[in-house]
Amino acid sequence: MNDQARRVTRPFRFGVVAPIGSDLPTWRDRVRRIADSGYSTLLMPDVPTWQPALAPTLATAAALTDLRIGSWVYAAALREPWSTAWEAHSLSVLTEGRFEMGIGAGRPGIEVELGLPAVSPAERRARMRETVATLRTFDGPDLHTPVVMAVSGPKSQALALEVADAVTFVLSPEDDRVETTNRVRDFAGTRDIELVQHVSVVGDGVAPFMAPPTLDTAALRAADSLLILPSDPAAAAGEIQRRREEIGFSYFVIGADFADTLAPVVAELAGQ
């Protein structure tokens, strides 16, 4: 029996990436509605200058509801390990353990676009490792901030196997179901790690901050990509169940624009 076959079947949970794309009262109402619909986690992208900073926005969301909160995801290309770890630890303390630190290398070239020095892939991975190690030091023996790591190639996957509690795979639009399934099944180790599915498209809608707005949704369907879910709740629920059964994904992250559409799915599957 291989590692994938031995993997524990985890209960479903669902997160929502909810950047501030409107006035604050509308965003606060959206956060409360997400919580009332049974979602587990409110997530914010790490996009400096595009919206208010991630940490105070998440703290505001945590004060509005009992949702867990998280970064989706800290971009190592933009962040120094010590200050990032301190911010993450502080959010864990202030929310009494409701914060999850999502971290990844960051989109290629994002630091140069913001006028910062270029950061190599190796340095990005080194920053990710140091951030997690420093976070564990800050947390000490009485607190464990969950770490969700966004991974692409084998080196980042190996790092996640060492230090992460959960992993989400960075997929390209060309990755089809078979390729993605094989990739996830090859991700094996002695630790049981939660598998997270980043879903950037529902029906024909593309979630802001989760994929380029020009993404070809018809091409995703043709490739049987895992980046997309049907907009019909019954079909989406069936597909989500299939992905857990066949691949092991149990935590699904969607864009806030689709939270109401998939609320029936959450009501049916969350916690099962």
Rank of each mutant, 00 (worst) to 15 (best):
V147D: 04
M149Q: 05
A150H: 02
A150Y: 03
V151I: 04
V151W: 01
V151D: 00
S152H: 09
G153D: 11
G153L: 04
P154A: 14
K155G: 04
K155S: 11
S156P: 02
L159W: 02
L161S: 06
V163P: 00
D165P: 02
T168C: 11
V170T: 10
S172M: 08
D176R: 01
D176Q: 06
E179G: 12
T181M: 13
D186S: 13
D192V: 10
L195P: 06
V202F: 10
A207K: 09
A207F: 09
F209V: 09
F209W: 10
P212M: 06
P213I: 03
L215P: 07
D216H: 12
D216A: 14
A219F: 07
L220K: 03
L220C: 03
R221L: 15
A222Q: 15
A222T: 15
A223S: 10
A223Q: 12
S225L: 14
S225H: 15
L226P: 15
I228E: 15
S231I: 15
D232Y: 01
D232R: 05
P233K: 12
P233F: 12
A235L: 12
A236I: 06
A236L: 10
G238R: 08
G238F: 01
E239P: 09
E239Q: 14
E239R: 13
Q241F: 02
Q241W: 05
R244K: 06
I247L: 09
I247V: 14
S250Y: 02
Y251P: 08
Y251R: 10
G255W: 02
